[in-house]
């Protein structure tokens, strides 16, 4: 076991391949995310991870993913889950349906995160309609803890169904200090989203 695995073991995270690397993002140039039609303006200070949590997602972090992260979910089509299946047989993830209402997106995200993070207390705190990537969408906030951890994490998500596909951006961070520290920058990234 090396230092990385020790760290991840303490954090309760699955180990990515050792070849996974962090890359610097350009501050003022729009970049395509999650290998999808969605583009955002990164702004200052974010790092992109070559390890992708799912085929249609991408992870950025400001201080490291244990403390804060932005996940992009791009171009999910009918019948696909919101995240990579961990245990398809016993704990299948909810599937996207392009007829979903905004409230359905939030509920499916909650059900997905309860399985993916094994969180016993994932809770959506607020929900409201917003314009996301120039389309009618949803914004919701949430909080949760992971099993065997007393660190509360808070999050804010925005998403919309565009051309029958799901596009989402979620910002998650430790509730103490880290969530507020980079919320405005995360919201600026969400505001900059465009889907061509």
């Amino acid at each position: 076991m090396n230092k990385l695995l020790l760290g991840l073991a303490f954090a309760g995270l699955a180990a990515p391949p050792l070849s996974a690397k962090w890359k610097l993002l350009p501050e003022t140039m729009p970049v395509a995310v999650a290998k999808s039609a969605m583009k955002v303006m990164p702004g200052q200070g974010w790092n992109s991870w070559s390890f992708r949590p799912g085929k249609k997602s991408e992870l950025w972090s400001y201080d490291g993913p244990v403390l804060n992260q932005i996940e992009f979910i791009g171009g999910v089509v009918d019948g696909e889950p919101f995240a990579k299946e961990r245990n398809k047989k016993d704990k299948p993830l909810p599937k996207f349906n392009s007829k979903m209402l905004p409230t359905d997106i939030a509920q499916a995200y909650e059900q997905t995160q309860r399985i993916v993070t094994r969180s016993p207390d994932f809770t959506i705190d607020s929900m409201e309609p917003v314009t996301f990537a120039a389309h009618p969408g949803v914004k919701f906030t949430f909080h949760f803890t992971r099993p065997d951890e007393e660190l509360t994490r808070k999050g804010e998500a925005r998403g919309a169904i565009i051309g029958g596909k799901l596009y989402m951006i979620t910002y998650t961070a430790a509730a103490l200090h880290y969530f507020d520290a980079h919320l405005a920058q995360a919201q600026a990234i969400m505001d900059s989203a465009k889907v061509d």
């Binding site: 954090a11 962090w22 400001y62 951890e149």
Partner: peptide
Amino acid sequence: LNEYRSLFKGVATTVLQHRLFKGDRLPTK
């Protein structure tokens, strides 16, 4: 105190992973 203890563990884990482990640097740090 419990929350801060957990946050310390998160910060320590992060420094272990990104500073003390050579292959996983954050370019912005």
